[in-house]
């Protein structure tokens, strides 16, 4: 009984854990379990006729060339959003970390976009990039560049990537700024005395010392790009034109909620679940080794 140093018996610790466990079970395990179960079924929209079909939903999914295309879209989209959001945030954080007048005001302003709902963010972007009512869209067309993201798939992808990354920059910015402020000044001053220029100081000292933050943000941003960008895609392009901006999570939404095909949609949710578990495991197993703590 020596191991139980804090609590005597099991009742109290479990009781204290109960609220959190209940929330986890009701909102995470039960829906996830139901998704796994539904992925083996074929049912009509109302769930009146239900039939066990084994792995048929998964077979159909991977036999569909369009699903493979959606996987490709998701990879491009997630990598681009993560890279763009983290690079911009790091740049801004380095700039805001300097001794400048009104630094506090800049920092506050840079955090704002995070508080904006995805649908509202998308509308803001529509007002900028829409080919006929958007400021930027009209300017581009005025300059003779044929800009129409409603028909051009590449341009549509660019728009959703930029909009999704923009929303995440603030979040990354906060963490990078905190990371920068925790780097000991003495190290930087020593390097400066040794004659290291700012760029060299950044790449040899600041960047490696920031790696725990960078790693954490990498995981968070990839998860964001995979799961939380649905609202922006829905409001901006609805996955179009011609599926150019359809990602895994958006397709799962369309099949489940719009097309009312819960079996296929659940199978996709299960695939996504496995993908994200694998991705996180790989990140912790391999990338974390290179991280300086």
């Amino acid at each position: 009984m020596n191991r139980k140093v804090i609590f005597k018996g099991v009742a109290l610790p479990y009781l204290l854990l109960l609220p959190q466990l209940l929330i986890t079970i009701v909102f995470f395990f039960l829906p996830a379990g139901q998704a796994i179960w539904f992925s083996f079924l074929r049912q009509d929209a109302f769930g009146i006729r239900t039939q066990f079909v084994g792995l048929e939903n998964f077979q159909d999914l991977f036999a569909d060339p369009l699903y493979i295309q959606v996987i490709g879209n998701t990879v491009i989209f997630s990598v681009a959003v993560t890279a763009l959001a983290m690079a911009c945030a790091l740049g801004l954080a380095v700039l805001a970390d300097r001794q400048i007048r009104g630094a506090q005001a800049y920092r506050t302003l840079l955090i704002w976009p995070y508080a904006i709902a995805p649908a509202v963010a998308a509308v803001l972007w529509i007002f900028m990039v829409h080919p006929s009512i958007g400021l930027l869209g009209r300017a581009l067309n005025g300059m003779g560049i044929a800009w129409d993201y409603k028909l051009n798939g590449g341009q549509a992808m660019l728009v959703v990537i930029v909009a999704a990354a923009w929303k995440q920059v603030s979040y990354n910015f906060i963490f990078f700024l905190a990371g920068l402020q925790s780097i000991p000044k003495a190290v930087l001053e020593a390097a400066a005395i040794d004659g290291a220029r700012p760029a060299r100081r950044f790449w040899t000292i600041i960047f490696p010392l920031l790696s725990p933050t960078t790693f954490f943000l990498l995981v968070v941003n990839l998860t964001y790009a995979f799961f939380d960008t649905f609202g922006i895609i829905d409001a901006l392009t609805k996955g179009g034109p011609a599926k150019a901006t359809e990602t895994l999570i958006y397709r799962a939404y369309v099949d489940g909620r719009v097309n009312l095909d819960l079996g296929t949609s659940s199978a996709q949710a299960v695939v996504l679940m496995i993908a994200i578990i694998a991705l996180t495991a790989i990140q912790f197993r391999f990338i974390e080794r290179r991280v300086h703590y």
Binding site: G153, G240, P241, A242, K243, V254, V258, L260
Partner: peptide, 21 residues
């Protein structure tokens, strides 16, 4: 049945045609 999906499929294929693909 699934007419919502069929409508979108036609729109998607039409978009590809308008794109010149």
């Amino acid at each position: 049945g699934g007419f919502i999906e069929i409508r979108n499929i036609i729109q998607e294929e039409l978009e590809k045609a308008f794109q010149g693909q």
